[in-house]
Structure formats: structure tokens, C-alpha cells
Computed example of a mutant assay.
Amino acid sequence: MSDGNTDVPRHIVSVALGPGLPELVPAGDYEACPVTQTLQMLGDKWTLLVLVMLAERPHRYNELRRRVEGVSQRMLTRTLRTLEEDGIVTRTVFPTIPPGVEYALSDRGRDLLVPLAGLADWVIRGQAA
């Protein structure tokens, strides 16, 4: 398909994405869509990098902060909280002084790695073409 060709057959769209969209898509419906919300979360500046690091192994907070050049404490905390709220990351607090905190991928987070790897492969193949 050329860069300007957006004429994808409707049956391909419905198989890949579902039944399609109504003529008018209400903004509230779009914002409330779980697919939209997930893609927005993944599009955050630091999310993918944190996910890839946690895919390697669990990390403590300061370890993540040292590995991610340029991330502020506030943004890393916000990213980790969002991932935790979405059930992608687990947070374990250890009873030490000061308390140690470790972040790891949840089962849902590990499941997310499969489509992310497919997307990464698609991007890399597209660059080689």
C-alpha cells in the first residue's frame, strides 16, 4: 500500500478492529474507550522504556531512576503509579529501614509484552523497507 492509499477494504478493518465506528464518534465515548486509554498510556514518554526494563527483571525505584537518563522523580513516580493502577506493574514494599520498594511486571504486564513485541517488529520491518 502506498503512503497516500488509505482505501483499506472494510472487511479487513472489521476483522482486525471490530464492527467499525458510527458516523459521529462522541468525544466522551472515544476518551472512555479502553483501547484509546491503553494506547495513550503506552504513548507516554517513559512508559515503554520502564516496561522494557521491568521485562528484564524487577527493579527498585532508585535503580530505575538511575537507568532512565532524563526522567524526573515526579515523572517516574507518576509513570509507575499509572502502570500500577492499570494492573501492569506490581509494587512490593519491603519492611526495611528505609522501606525498600520493588517494581515488577504483573501477569497482565507480561501479557502486554506479546503485542508490544509484535508492534516493535512491525516498526523495524517498516524501517527496513
Rank of each mutant, 00 (worst) to 15 (best):
M1E: 09
S2P: 08
G4C: 07
G4P: 02
N5P: 02
T6N: 14
T6S: 12
D7L: 15
D7R: 15
D7W: 09
V8K: 13
R10T: 11
R10M: 14
R10Q: 14
V13R: 15
V15L: 15
L17A: 12
L17D: 04
L21F: 11
P22M: 12
E23W: 07
L24D: 12
P26E: 11
P26V: 09
P26C: 08
A27Q: 14
D29E: 13
A32P: 02
C33I: 05
C33N: 15
V35L: 14
Q37N: 08
T38I: 10
M41T: 10
L42P: 00
G43M: 10
D44Y: 03
D44W: 05
K45Y: 08
W46H: 10
W46R: 06
T47E: 02
T47S: 10
L49H: 10
V50P: 01
V52Q: 14
A55P: 01
R57S: 05
P58V: 06
H59K: 11
N62S: 11
N62A: 06
N62E: 12
E63H: 04
R65F: 06
R66F: 08
V68E: 02
E69T: 11
G70D: 03
Q73Y: 12
Q73M: 10
R74Q: 09
M75S: 12
L80C: 02
L80M: 04
L80H: 01
T82W: 05
T82P: 01
L83S: 01
L83K: 01
E84Q: 11
E85F: 06
D86I: 04
D86T: 07
G87R: 10
I88S: 00
R91Q: 04
T92V: 11
V93S: 08
V93C: 04
V93I: 13
V93H: 03
P95K: 13
T96G: 05
P98F: 09
V101W: 03
E102D: 01
Y103P: 00
L105E: 01
L105S: 01
L105I: 01
S106D: 01
S106G: 02
S106E: 02
D107F: 07
D107A: 13
R108G: 00
R108M: 06
R108N: 06
G109D: 00
R110N: 06
V114M: 07
P115W: 11
A117I: 09
L119G: 04
A120Q: 05
D121C: 08
W122L: 15
V123D: 04
I124M: 13
R125H: 05
G126A: 14
G126Q: 14
Q127S: 08
Q127F: 11
A128I: 12
